[in-house]
Design a protein around this nucleic acid. Structure first.
Length: 422
RNA sequence: GGAGAGAUGGCUGAGUGGUCGAAAGCGCUCCCCUGCUAAGGGAGUAUACCCUUAACAGGGUAUCGAGGGUUCGAAUCCCUCUCUCUCCGCCA
């Protein structure tokens, strides 16, 4: 959610930002401003009425305590009319506020000036790359390797739950556990605090990080209890500090959290969803930062390069994309995607997405801090995957497959696996 | 799942219809005093929003778990919900 005062003062910037993100209905900006103006006028009116009414009530109180019943009664009769007036004005105010807030939720975060303008994948810029993508023919895709060795069971997963809910068996189950531990240990060495979160969240939390109303359909719902299964640890972990005010010495806050993630992925199909490329349940180690506004873009670069370092340590070639305005999310101001090379499929697979949300999430969550002048300010939030497991596993299997049919274990993972081949 | 108790400011804790955004204590900040330390004295110390102001600041409204109701007036009375604690049951 953007600051209404920011919109008032930067109407054109907001509209340009919306257009750059591919949002057509930019007239909401003026509608918001209109509703806000109406609300302000009404608030002033309500406050005025309440003030008068309070004044009279206070007088009545004084008269009563002095035993002047008759005068008090007279005043009570005069005051009765306020009730209806206030109620009426409150109703209008509430309506205007709701209208304003609903419209406000439809306005996306403004892209940072360093973000390239573009409206599709083509607009993304290759920010950097590492390693040499293996273009050799004849390398097997991970699903073949997994199938030949009975490492992943998609069919039984489909029987037990549904498509996109695979079982991992034997060495592959262990490989996932090794990756989780490896990722968490690396983050701890970088000063992140490990945190374990609930896997279900309530509606307020989903709203806080912006899954509602923008991306409601991505989440599984548990209607009886009003819960959503988390699509990413970002949701519970960022909401952890909802409604809190930090002091300067508590910042920045850095968390690393491993959780499963559930995504409905409605509308996905084709070769994109083959094997481990796209699942309804997957494991991810997530990094969340809560930082001072002045530091957030620098922190984004740190986050990006940290995520990159993980792929380097696993010796998996990758490239980093700076996402263009149109391919970034509703809530982000700047975003990098890390894509690992999949030699068996000869394509890039997204394994991490590092984003700066500036104050967009924090405002809705009332996530604030007291600055040097003891003034309250909204914080900035960031997050990034460090990393998402399935595609790392896919790239790893395909990259480390050997002529003899075995799959080697990357050196850094060997202590976690206790062996050199899977 | 059954029975009971409770929810007040950073913390502890008073307050059962009127000048209560809320006593007191603790903590914290600033000042004074004291050659260090300890003790003492004074002032201050929630959040959101609206209005006025270039700004400093000032005025107003709301908030005592949440929402609704009664009343001229609610922390205080009524209803609903949530959460916490104790006991019983069940259980990884």
């Amino acid at each position: 959610m953007l600051d209404i005062n920011f919109i008032r003062e930067n109407r054109d910037t907001v509209i340009t930002g919306m257009k750059d993100k591919g949002e057509k209905e930019t007239e909401v900006v003026d509608k918001v401003l209109e509703a806000d103006q109406r609300w302000r006028t009404l608030v002033t009116k309500v406050d005025q009425l309440r003030s008068e009414s309070n004044e009279k009530s206070k007088e009545i109180g004084i008269l009563m305590s002095q035993g002047k019943k008759e005068e008090a009664r007279k005043l009570i009769n005069e005051t009765t009319g306020y009730k209806a007036d206030i109620k009426e004005a409150e109703k209008e105010t509430e309506a205007a506020k709701n209208e304003r807030d609903e419209l406000l939720l439809k306005i996306p975060n403004v892209p940072h000036e360093s973000v390239p303008v573009g409206f599709s994948e083509e607009g993304n810029q290759v920010f950097g790359s590492w390693g040499e993508p293996n273009q050799k023919d004849g390398l097997k895709p991970h699903w073949e390797l997994a199938d030949e060795n009975d490492w992943i069971d998609f069919e039984r997963g489909a029987k037990v739950t549904g498509a996109g809910f695979p079982f991992y068996i034997g060495p592959l189950a262990r490989l996932q556990r090794a990756l989780i531990n490896f990722f968490i240990d690396e983050a701890l060495a970088e000063g992140y605090i490990e945190i374990q979160s609930p896997y279900f969240v309530n509606e307020d939390s989903a709203r806080g990080t912006g899954q509602i109303p923008d991306k409601e359909d991505m989440m599984y719902v548990i209607p009886r209890d009003g819960f959503f299964t988390i699509p990413t640890a970002e949701v519970p972990v960022t909401n952890f500090h909802r409604d809190e005010i930090f002091s300067m010495d508590q910042l920045p806050v850095k968390y690393v959290a491993y959780t499963p993630c559930w995504r409905r992925e409605a509308g996905s199909y084709g070769k994109d969803v083959r094997g481990l490329n796209r699942l309804h349940q997957f494991d991810k180690v997530e990094l969340v930062k809560i930082v001072r506004p002045s530091d957030s873009y620098e922190e984004l670069e740190n986050l990006r390069s940290y995520a990159e370092s993980l792929l380097q340590k696993l010796e998996l070639p990758y490239r980093t994309l700076l996402m263009c305005t149109g391919d970034m999310g509703f809530t982000q101001s700047k975003k990098y995607d890390l894509e690992v090379w999949s030699p068996g499929q000869k394509r890039w697979l997204e394994v991490s997405s590092c984003s700066n949300f500036t104050d967009f999430q924090a405002r809705r969550m009332m996530l604030r801090f007291k600055n040097d002048q003891k003034k309250i300010e909204i914080l900035h939030t960031l997050n990034g995957s460090g990393l998402a497991l399935p595609r790392v596993v896919a790239a790893l299997l395909e990259t480390y497959q050997q002529a003899d049919g075995e799959v080697a274990v990357p050196e850094k993972l060997q202590p976690y696996m206790g062996r050199e081949v899977l």
